[in-house]
Amino acid sequence: MKSNKVVSLLKDLGLLLYAMFALFPLVWLVIISFKHDREMFNTTFIFSPTLDNYRVLFSSGEFIGYFVDNLIVSVGAIILSIVVGVPAAYALARFDFKGKESIAFTFLSFRFAPEILVVLPIFLIYQKIGLYDTYFGLIWIFQVVSLPLMIWILRGYFEDISVEMEHAARLDGYSWWQVFIKMIIPLIKPGLVASSLLSFIFVWNNFTFSLLLAGQKVTTTTVAMLKYVSSDTVHYGQMAAAVLISSLPIIILALAIQKHLVRGLSMGAVKG
């Protein structure tokens, strides 16, 4: 019994050490966001905290503009990929058509090439067709980032739903659309929430596309961070504050929808 206690104590200690190791960058970020520039390099944990960095951030209202821009393109991209991705995933799960697997694979392949590799041709195309530095331009390209994830996660969810259940609902007197809204959407909700959240994180934090396909009229927070690197110095404190603020939406979103992230709802309704 005694050795058990020691073992569990050691386990806890190990976990604690790992937690400290994993969380330290975040803690450090919080610390330096409250530091004055002049204390940046000569203090570690003991310093006189200041809200100056945050004050600078919100004084001009510029940062709020970037934040809103980021919100518009991210939410826009997610909505677009839900509108396109849900029917696409349904079709891939339910219907049998020629080249089905190839199409599914093509969707996945959107994620294969590194962004930096494809951004140059897209940049040129966007310049030509006037999508450069527009909301829609960014939404369009971000949708390419989020769509594959959405389709592949949701396809699995749709495949888990038995076709007979859809048939049963039809015979119960629901039209196809009503079946889709009333019976199918509730069943894929966990997958929809999970894939939307994941895509949102990817899109929100995207840097390459935001930097190279926009930057003047439409500026996302990730690109805006660069502004704190000036010619003579790097404003680490302001940058840290900006990073913290811009990661808030994701943290809030993740906490808010946590309870929807459950699986296994569709199990048990068909013959087991």
């Binding site: 259940m165 049963a168 013959k271």
Partner: peptide, 20 residues
């Protein structure tokens, strides 16, 4: 005639219940 308009009721072998 669409299935929902045929006014037939069906019992499925694999139950086909609504899990939610």
């Amino acid at each position: 005639v669409e299935p929902e308009d045929r006014n037939v009721a069906m019992v499925f072998e694999d139950y086909a219940l609504y899990p939610h």
